[in-house]
Design a protein around this nucleic acid. Structure first.
Lengths: 263, 263
DNA sequence: GAGTGGTCTAGACCACACC
DNA sequence: GTGTGGTCTAGACCACTCC
């Protein structure tokens, strides 16, 4: 059932329209948003193929090149992956190679190795005001309830990072300790496969601080040793913040890496 | 004088050809490389307009859409900037907004403010083996001569970072203390405006370490205070490493920021 | 109005993957 | 062979900028 193009028909849902006078969004942006909808609603699952360009063109009633533009932007944003002869795939950020999209710590002088995470604690409570503001939750109300997790990451057995994680209960209904333990390798994998929430961007603030006794004990270093303190806000497609975490990274034998630019 | 397309003519320089049998690169990649050549040779200067799409299409003897593909990739890499109705511009990384492309430190709770840099020392010497390897220089020969700079960065007067910088003499002939002092706001600005070298990508390794006495004195903190140690390799278009620097960042009142993903 | 990039299309042929 | 994405083109019309 092709959606509208070049006409201003009204359907039950927002149709794809190209009407210069109404200041409508470009067709390819509308297509892009439709695709994102399908991704957020988990209709198209991570790792799977999406319909071919020609099929999408028919479905939405636009030219193939328009579809290519929409897909092109999503490929640039690493949300989709094109493979010649095979199809266009939904990027699976949970797989080996792309864990490092958001985890930037590696062992000195070694190749990237996937970290193993251990859930140390799982609680339910109120978000403090600062976190509530970041997550766009009301302050101190029933809707500001959050899950609070503590996670320890190891690389080849050595403790690398301790993270305190805060996520809204409203977005992750039914989340429990068991779900996390049994579900996925990474937390973002759980967000994605169980809740259809894909983390696509993060902002981080880094500081060098002295490890307190708790951090030191977890990371097996001395109290007062320098560690990197990371405060991260993770967001989904529309820059909607979903998770706030604060962590401490052991950089004795490990380092935090960043690449900028490049093609 | 249009270059070749669809034929295999031989010119004095590499012509743009589309010959499926010879396994040649796609036309648009060749165009992209031509554009990069014009940028590296400083024929098209940062901040200026490049020829219009139609002109480029004529010049290189390809279709406008092919030009658009080439430009599209360079825009995605933030090397070119398109402005509707005005033209396509060479990104000037020295301007206010893009200083932060490679400098990731800001004052806590404040807007981004451009840092001011002070040259503390300027020497000429041999690169040690490790640095020589990174910069692709021969070990301990005449060609492994490098300039060694020490730089102090301040934000609103407060010392933020101390950097030791190493660059090959061969690439920066005639560089002197005076050139740096009189030339530009940033060192990368000098690389670009005086040597036609544009830094387009960097990799950084971060560690939390204790400040030694030199670092502490420069940053006006206590010896032993935690600081972030940054080791950066900066590269130009073809991933050719141009500069190695090691720095120490004061994160008392400042933080190092990172954004990943996003559209 | 003239020139620029922005959007959108239709269609050709190629390279690759799978059967 | 069939279907996928990859490359490449020609051309239409729109929106913006400058004169």
């Amino acid at each position: 059932m092709p959606l509208v193009s070049r006409d201003s028909d009204v359907h039950m849902q927002k149709a794809i329209v190209s009407d210069p006078l109404s200041g409508a969004e470009p067709l390819y942006k509308q297509v892009k948003n439709k695709i994102i909808q399908n991704l957020t609603s988990d209709e198209w699952k991570p790792g799977s193929v999406i319909p071919s360009e020609t099929k999408l063109a028919e479905t939405y009633g636009v030219g193939v090149s328009t579809i290519r533009m929409a897909i092109g932007e999503l490929v640039a944003a690493r949300i989709l992956i094109r493979r010649q002869g095979k199809g266009t795939f939904v990027s699976s950020r949970a797989d080996q190679h792309s864990v490092y999209q958001f985890f930037h710590v590696v062992k000195d002088g070694a190749d990237r190795e996937a970290p193993v995470s251990e859930l140390l604690s799982f609680k339910r409570g109120q978000a403090d005001d600062k976190v509530a503001d970041i997550l766009n939750l009301p302050r101190s109300s029933k809707d500001s309830e959050v899950f609070k997790l503590r996670n320890l990451l190891r690389i080849s057995g050595s403790p690398v990072a301790l993270y305190d994680i805060v996520i809204p209960c409203a977005l992750f209904k039914g989340l429990s300790e068991n779900v996390i333990r049994n579900f996925g390798r990474t937390l973002y994998g759980v967000y994605q496969s169980r809740y259809g929430i894909t983390i696509v961007s993060t902002t981080e603030e880094l500081r060098a601080v002295k490890a307190d006794s708790t951090v030191a004990r977890s990371l097996k270093i001395q109290t007062g040793d320098p560690v990197i303190e990371v405060t991260r806000v993770a967001s989904t497609f529309d820059s909607k913040p979903v998770e706030v975490r604060r962590g401490w990274v052991n950089t004795k034998g490990f380092h935090y890496f960043i690449t900028q630019g490049g093609e």
